[in-house]
Design a protein around this nucleic acid. Structure first.
Lengths: 335, 335
DNA sequence: CGTCAATATTGAAACGTTTCAATCGGAATG
DNA sequence: CATTCCGATTGAAACGTTTCAATATTGACG
């Protein structure tokens, strides 16, 4: 066990502790010669700086906290991945928390991270009440909401524009000639789903068509397959010519039902468009057109914005909204 | 910004700093009355203990480091999830690192975590040379390899028995009546793939049959589809009656090729079995039989073992190997 | 050779805890 | 009333840095 402190390095190199600190941090001019001596001593002794001590003395911490709803969900995994990239270039460590959409656990992580005096907090909150986060932010720890709008709370956020995404999807379907599209997604209590539907319905109305809602119980492949079975069993006159699904998993489920139970051709008889553009989207039987959400970018931007806010110690809150991007593949008709 | 220290709490409560510490940590008997006073003061002032200071003084850290190959990969996301659960019960924080299978980045995280004086390190190493990890471990920081055997290096590990998993898969195929199975997977330089193949081939030989290898370039759906196309274009006499894929993504790809290009029925004409049992496995068109790897358990066990080793400060290294589990669905013939 | 400025180096005081020997105040005992 | 003992409390010394005013060293210049 190496318990080597700057004191040891200093005495080995024949200089003072202050000088060692300067060498290690480049905080002040040090002559070529002493620098060499000190670096040699560090090498020989295997000195490793003590983050706790430096943080205590300097007051600056070198870590960020990230609390997600479910670390094993690919979307959040990508968010974490992106956040990590940004931390990397800033030389920061990332503390990970997983609330499992449980407010108590979320709160526990918040407390834990407060003790660590993290430089900032990235949180996808579980509940509707963000007052604890607000109070943390007002005490000086920058807080950034991820994939969640702040509503009335005074917090910064990084989100993706779900209304625009919904509109985008319908735009594409209509341009491809669809005159009887439907929307699949749910529950509508999820703000993300509600917004996507709202955007899509608006665009449909502009074209003078309705956008019937086929609500799903959750956002999984199986739920999508259930809805798909409902769709294919409709009388032919009521059958849609296009389906917009609130995420890719639903779209995959719908596609499976269509292929298993009908002879309908995709996209000729029925176009399908998903949302998220997960990795599996381009690997479905008929490659899936999808509205891409930049999960990694979300994480990276959250970190960068937080750091920038920290820098400028601006008190103003900043809401950053990304515009999703349409990725056209073979499950929809070309325009 | 609340900068409240124990000193502030102490003076507010009219006691000494030491007493506050005892109240906060329950480290020594404190009378009911003072305890109340102190807790009141803490509440009023909004005191939060400073992890850096306590770590510096006590020498004990309260965090673990986890370095994975790719944080956005669902397998590692689950590992992280499991590790987090175990940290949770132990009251530890988890620092996350993502090497992207780059040894330099891995090394950078190792250094970063060394500065943080983490209580232990969980690592899925990128390269073959584990001497840096070995040296870290010998300096006193417990290191646990995750999903990777230590080979000749003196390190503890938590893995899943890939040989047994491969054997298990073939066992099931043969029991279902297969007489001409093949193996799909690659590159064989991945120890995981090589072991699965070895186990499967052994079992096949015991039954007096060969297990031809269809090597894939990587372990993705697309690579699987490529191999699938090769398989379906074989002359009928050479066509296998069962396919064992080194992971589920490959299996999905093979399945897609079979459904797209042939009239073969799964499992009657061709059985397919995958590996990992990812969430999507039960959502494929024909639900996929798979050899389940307990990713979450892997992470959780890694943390628990590491903590236990830490406790006992045992110098002996411990290799823990899980046995995978066969999950039978409709893509294989029942026995 | 003396002086001055510039540049390198030093020393010591924090930072907020934990920890432990020392002290205090009572209650119980003789 | 003096003593002993015991639990509750205190005070101060670390822990390993950073930081900054103060000092030492150097080189250039007159």
């Amino acid at each position: 066990m190496a318990k080597v402190s700057m004191r040891d390095v200093a005495s080995r190199a024949g200089v003072s502790v202050g000088t060692v600190s300067h060498v290690v941090n480049g905080s002040s001019k040090v002559s070529e010669a002493t620098m060499l001596k000190v670096n040699d001593a560090i090498e020989e002794l295997g000195f490793v700086r003590n983050a706790a001590a430096r943080q205590l003395r300097s007051g600056r911490s070198s870590s960020l906290g990230l609390v997600v709803l479910d670390a094993s969900n690919p979307f959040f995994a990508s968010v974490a991945h992106g956040a990590l990239e940004a931390c990397d270039v800033a030389g920061l460590s990332l503390l990970l928390g997983d609330s499992g959409t449980d407010e108590a656990r979320e709160s526990k992580y918040l407390d834990l991270f407060a003790e660590q005096r993290v430089n900032g907090l990235l949180v996808t909150p579980s509940g509707a009440d963000l007052s604890k986060l607000e109070s943390i932010a007002s005490k000086g720890t920058p807080v950034m909401l991820v994939d969640r709008a702040p509503g009335d709370f005074a917090l910064s956020s990084v989100t993706v524009d779900n209304v625009a995404g919904g509109r985008m999807a319908l735009d594409h379907l209509i341009a491809g000639g669809s005159s009887a599209p439907i929307f699949v997604g749910g529950p509508l209590s999820l703000p993300q789903v509600a917004d996507r539907y709202a955007g899509a319905r608006d665009r449909a109305r502009e074209a003078g068509i309705e956008l019937p809602l086929f609500e799903s119980s959750e956002m999984t492949i199986l739920a999508g397959r259930d809805v798909g079975e409902r769709i294919v069993s409709l009388p032919e006159a009521q059958r849609p010519d296009a389906v917009f699904c609130a995420n890719d998993l639903l779209a995959v489920g719908v596609m499976q039902a269509v292929i298993m139970f009908t002879e309908l051709r995709i996209p000729d008889d029925l176009a399908i468009i998903g949302y998220d553009d997960i990795d599996y989207a381009l690997s479905t039987i008929v490659p899936l057109t999808s509205v891409r959400q930049p999960a990694g970018l979300l994480g990276r931007t959250a970190v960068e914005t937080l750091l920038a806010e920290n820098e400028s110690s601006a008190t103003a809150h900043c809401d950053q909204m990304f515009t999703p991007e349409l990725v056209i593949r073979e499950s929809t008709r070309p325009v």
